[in-house]
Design a protein around this nucleic acid. Structure first.
Length: 614
RNA sequence: GGUCCCGUAGCUCAGCUGGAUAGAGCAACUGACUUCUAAUCAGUAGGUCACAGGUUCGAAUCCUGUCGGGAUCACCA
């Protein structure tokens, strides 16, 4: 990039010389020249013609001649219509490669002296992590890596929803039908075991509900409403009311929640036990995914937070009290509704909790920037939350962002964990590694390593396929995930990029001791592949900054793919080691080496590891 | 109904602040491994960028409207 900036300044100086007009170098549009034309970079002259009062081609000609005689970088040019194609001096390319190669942390932004918190995952403790969580976790982790590379200090957090009616359902079912089963005595992973009972509860509840629907009470209720004509439609919609008003199981679950809130010792004991099963299970899954958290927050400890801030806000007229004692924020002046922040009985809500958690995190880490990775169904919630925090005048209020992403659906429709209709994260991870293995065995590759090493490689390949598949698309898009078909190992995929890296590693192994990574500085014979690779390499820092400012891992994914693609092409077109000229050989190896390093760094930003061979 | 997101090749997706003939991958068909790893490369075919207007020298990109898909609008989380 620095060379491009230099070029822009040279151009603006040339324009000044020719027209006496000052032009902001940043306003110039320069892009790499399309391969159909001769040149390396292209300046768009259309926006400049008004300063000259001449035709685009004449303007291009004038600027081109000026650059050719005075610029350090440009040594030739041609104009086509309003496009000024500039060719760079041979030395430019070796210099640029040398710059990149000699910068160990190439790509990293300057330290920004600002802490950013990324919250992601945030699971419930009543069931295992599934495909939906995977998208959330991968996005969150990648964004945190990107922020880090862009120069922020990053804190990763999750808020574990370990309380409420859902976990009580699992607890109740375990008590009723569990017969003392544990992860240890059943050899079932803890989060799955608890999830089994969540499903069990719902199955039993549905049975109970189905029976009840035939009773006189139920039929009377159905007849007395006039919204639904169809009985099934009505009862589908009435489920929640049934749970709260008539269900025996519902009543038991609510009683359990009440006991929990009153800290009944036996209930607390069971709750702690089952939560631990789940959390231990989650940790394993996180480890498999390669993610970790600076700190985990638990709702059981934070759900009362925020009330104090609400009281403070009441004094400052951010909120007002209704007649029944409930507390509200009136956001109608910014086109939002009124929002309740404290119930009439004084208890807090989801939003109250979020206000409190944000404050707690600020106290813990002094994070002035907060990113919440949460599904797009909560967009309105976060809009409201951010507005309220702004009105409360918190120090972190100005830099809060909801990274919202679309739902992951199966070909059969939405996932429903209550019905057990999900793709579990663990299963998916295993399947991916299996597929990588099958694929490799069919091809008969990876021979010179032992079983353990091989399994590790398959795991890396499988995870790369999965992670890349999810991260390469814009988060806002909904995605339909077909477990059988979605994740390829060929083409625009994680393994494709790993393969480019592995090819370089293989070359380096084969040629060890026969090259000098610094022995090419006078080499001036770059071909078009090499120029294109160097250009792409030099865009890495810019891509990171852009990905950070847009919270967009897909930009990195596309960048890395582009670089790998160019390298594969280069590799098949030119034999890296097939030259006797020492400086050419050094140059090609150094270039390959730098590409490999950049691929590795880029993939790391996606949370993807590189194997040394595959 | 209000607000927000999405709509680009049969399928999955790129397309940066408007710029040259809209690009990849998968699937289909052709070719290339005695030569640095073929999880690769080269090629053929596949497009009314949902639709209609507008702004501009120039629009997939910006604006308005329409259509289609989704989300959301709780004293649930």
């Amino acid at each position: 990039m620095s060379a491009l900036n230099k070029l822009k300044i040279e151009i603006s100086e040339a324009i000044k010389k020719l027209t006496q007009q000052k032009i902001d170098p940043e306003s110039l549009t320069i892009s790499s020249t399309r391969k159909e034309f001769i040149g390396d970079y292209t300046l768009l002259v259309f926006p400049l013609i008004r300063h000259f009062g001449k035709k685009p081609e004449e303007v291009g000609q004038l600027i081109g001649e000026e650059l050719k005689s005075n610029s350090e970088i440009v040594n030739d040019f041609n104009t086509i219509k309003g496009f000024l194609n500039l060719s760079f001096s041979p030395q430019y390319w070796t210099n640029t490669l040398q710059d990149i190669q000699s910068t160990p942390d190439f790509g990293r932004g300057k330290a920004k002296d600002k802490k950013v918190m990324v919250e992601f995952s945030s699971p419930n403790t009543n069931k295992p992590l599934h495909l939906g969580h995977i998208r959330n976790i991968l996005l969150g982790w990648s964004v945190s890596k990107i922020m880090d590379a862009a120069g922020y200090e990053v804190i990763t957090t999750q808020v574990v929803n370990d309380r409420g009616i859902a976990i009580c359902k699992s607890m109740l079912a375990w008590k009723k039908w569990g017969d003392g089963i544990t992860p240890e005595n059943s050899n079932r992973k803890g989060d799955f075991l608890v999830g089994d009972f969540y499903v069990k509860f719902n199955t039993e509840f549905n049975n109970e509900y189905a029976k009840w629907q035939k009773t006189k009470t139920a039929q009377t209720i159905f007849i007395n409403q006039n919204k639904y004509e169809n009985e099934n439609d009505f009862f589908a919609d009435y489920k929640n009311d049934y749970f709260n008003d008539y269900s025996k199981l519902g009543k038991e679950a609510r009683e359990m929640l009440l006991k929990w809130e009153n800290k009944d010792p036996k209930t607390m004991e069971l709750w702690k036990k089952m939560n631990n099963w789940v959390l231990t299970g989650f940790d394993e899954t996180y480890k498999e995914l390669g993610v970790s958290f600076t700190k985990s927050y638990f709702e059981s400890k934070t759900y009362i937070l925020g009330r104090k801030i609400v009281e403070e806000g009441l004094k400052n007229n951010v909120f007002y009290t209704e007649k029944d004692g409930s507390v509200w924020a009136d956001l109608t002046d910014v086109n939002m509704d009124k929002k309740i922040v404290l119930r009439s009985d004084g208890t807090s809500l989801y939003i109250t909790q979020d206000i409190g958690t944000a404050e707690l995190r600020y106290k813990d880490f002094k994070t002035e920037k907060m990113i919440y990775v949460v599904g797009d169904e909560q967009e309105y919630h976060f809009k409201v939350l951010f507005e309220i925090i702004k009105r409360l005048n918190r120090p972190y209020a100005d830099d809060m962002y909801h990274l919202s992403y679309g739902m992951v659906e199966l070909p059969t429709g939405k996932m429903k964990s209550r019905e057990g209709k999900v793709v579990d994260a663990d299963d998916l991870i295993k399947e991916m590694a299996m597929e990588a293995k099958t694929n490799a065995e069919e091809k008969g590759i990876i021979d010179d390593s032992n079983d353990e090493e091989r399994d590790e490689i398959y795991r890396k390949i499988g995870m790369a396929a999965l992670k890349f598949f999810i991260l390469k698309v814009n988060p806002k898009r909904r995605m339909i995930f077909n477990p059988e078909e979605s994740v390829d190992l060929q083409g625009q995929t994680g393994p494709y990029i790993q393969n480019a890296y592995v090819r370089v590693k293989s070359i380096l192994r084969k040629s060890e001791g026969t090259y000098d990574l610094n022995g090419y500085f006078n080499y001036i014979d770059c071909n078009s592949h090499e120029k294109s690779l160097i250009t792409t390499l030099s865009e890495f820092p810019y891509t990171i900054q852009q990905a950070a400012s847009e919270y967009e891992p897909s930009l990195i994914a596309n960048y890395v793919y582009d670089l790998a693609k160019k390298y594969h092409k280069y590799y098949s077109d030119i034999r890296i080691l097939g030259t006797d000229k020492q400086d050419a050989r050094n140059f090609r190896i150094a270039l390959s080496h730098t590409v490999a390093q950049t691929l590795k760094k880029g993939m790391d930003l996606l949370g993807i590891q590189m194997p040394e061979r595959m």
